[in-house]
Design a binder for these strands. Sequence first.
DNA 1: TTGTACGCGTTATCAA
DNA 2: TTGATAACGCGTACAA
Lengths: 341, 341
Amino acid sequence: MPVTIHDIAQSAGVSVGTVSRVINNSPGVKQGTRERVLAVIAQLQYRPDPIARSMVSKRTGSVGVIVPFFTRPFFMEVLQGIEAAIAEDRRDLVLYNVENDIQRHRYFSEVPMRRRVDGLLILSLTPDEAAARHLREIGLPTVLVDGYSPLHTSLVVDNIDGAYQAMQCLIRRGHQRIGFIIGLIDGTFQFNQANDRLIGVHRALGEAGILFEPELIVTADWTRQGGKSAALHLLALKHRPTAIFAGSDMQAIGVLNAANALGIRVPEELAIIGFDGIEVSELLDLSTMQQPMRHMGALGVYHLIRQMHNPEQPPELIRLSTTLVERRTTDPGHHLAAPSV
Amino acid sequence: MPVTIHDIAQSAGVSVGTVSRVINNSPGVKQGTRERVLAVIAQLQYRPDPIARSMVSKRTGSVGVIVPFFTRPFFMEVLQGIEAAIAEDRRDLVLYNVENDIQRHRYFSEVPMRRRVDGLLILSLTPDEAAARHLREIGLPTVLVDGYSPLHTSLVVDNIDGAYQAMQCLIRRGHQRIGFIIGLIDGTFQFNQANDRLIGVHRALGEAGILFEPELIVTADWTRQGGKSAALHLLALKHRPTAIFAGSDMQAIGVLNAANALGIRVPEELAIIGFDGIEVSELLDLSTMQQPMRHMGALGVYHLIRQMHNPEQPPELIRLSTTLVERRTTDPGHHLAAPSV
DNA sequence: TTGTACGCGTTATCAA
DNA sequence: TTGATAACGCGTACAA
């Protein structure tokens, strides 16, 4: 039988009200009384029941994180930033991993209905009109990381500019015939980051006066396999590209695999640049457009907590940018940084 | 103002008791009544408040997962199995990531004190005597995955045999001088898996009649950096090893990096085998002792849920074994499996 | 400064 | 088959 606030009250010879005031550091308790109560609490090892507390306070002390395919490196790294920030604030992190439509619906609609969490962080997923409105209506603090909704504070990275810069890097190095592997825009997930990256590609091409050739753009799964198949296709063209820009690092690694399989030397015969800046890209010495992943996560939590404290906060749009990291796959002269050799 | 069971009762012209019975599919409600209530529920979009429910049922519907450094590949993959199994059972997964002593203490002692979760899954971490007893006393269903406690159902992999087999593989290939990189046995985390692996090494050496040479055993961090430093040390010996067995894949990758840096050909001049079987090991074509990571996670959840349903269940010890996966780093003749090229 | 009593939304017990 | 009501453990007005 767990010890309750009543036991403490009785043992300390005070009322439950007083004990409650002590627990919550409420003012209006005589110093002596407070100490006596505290002593009893320590002695009986009393801890308030969080559920009963939630019952009256309407708060749970936990935040939900909706993330697609949480094991994938990119999501993983953002999640790491999220976790650290949440733990820092001494809250529980409830993980909602979505890998299909059912889960997506469940986590966007059912779960929030009855506050199981005090706030919601949505990663790389875009709630549809209805879901977004619903979240707003029930007043559940919500922040989107790597996603956008006019109704919620959103943290976006400039995918257009990122892609633009990646292409520029390739163009600067003299490439004229550049393949682009674009991630699938799955209806379910609406990873429309791919779209923006495509826009950046066009812009760079246009500025450089390079003719856009549809056969050089291929759509593929956001995975290594997807990247590899796409690359095999591109490299089989009569007039094959001398460089490939992959919409994600995992795809870029697939491109590397393809090049290896075909005996094509990288970067001499084929330059490769990815997008994301996940940890393995460093392992494989892959050039990439680095997203501030951990920071995105931490910043998302920061804004979420702010909103939880001040529910009237209007939605904000926060823009982040990417950073070019050139490594061996675009730069023949690149020698490994000391610590990563 | 959220709709409550009272609103439903009033609208349907019945008592809250009846509504409750309908919600919980309890028997003893006339068909007509049930339908009427259901209709009102649907109309008002009523959902029972999980917190109020917990208040009386003493159950939260969520399970806590304590995991060290959850982003590391090994933990990540086990976690993936855990997440899937928990979602399957429609429960919430609360992630407790421990990276230091404070968190460790918090999650082992404070958190469980007041049931915030219905069950606890502990990954690769061993609660000390006191914590283990405490968990047992408060009757919180607990399962250890990749860890052992006599007081709790534990799921262990045979690290001794795994290491033994890894060494045998090397010995079979004619290696006589084999370096071993052993993971740090941090006081905080007691990753004593390393110990068992060392025992397996000794056994294999003994059986093969190979003299044990202390200089060939080096302790290192469970990271790529750790593996790399250790390898650099081993490869700088006057009489350097022709093969290295690393206690984890991440360390093995560090060994690969070191070999590359020194221009030592793998596997011709140096064979390498790791332990774990994480995804990147396939990417890098690394030989390894594969642990059934996802399965470990899923199985852990299975046992945990069983225990939650039947609290009297006595602790069990479940043993799992590893599988040798030879790839290029031990086998010169190895050609890549088709899908991973 | 402290105590009393009500309410939070359910479930469960006991009568009716 | 249904209704009234007592818990569950806590916070908080309001009264003392």
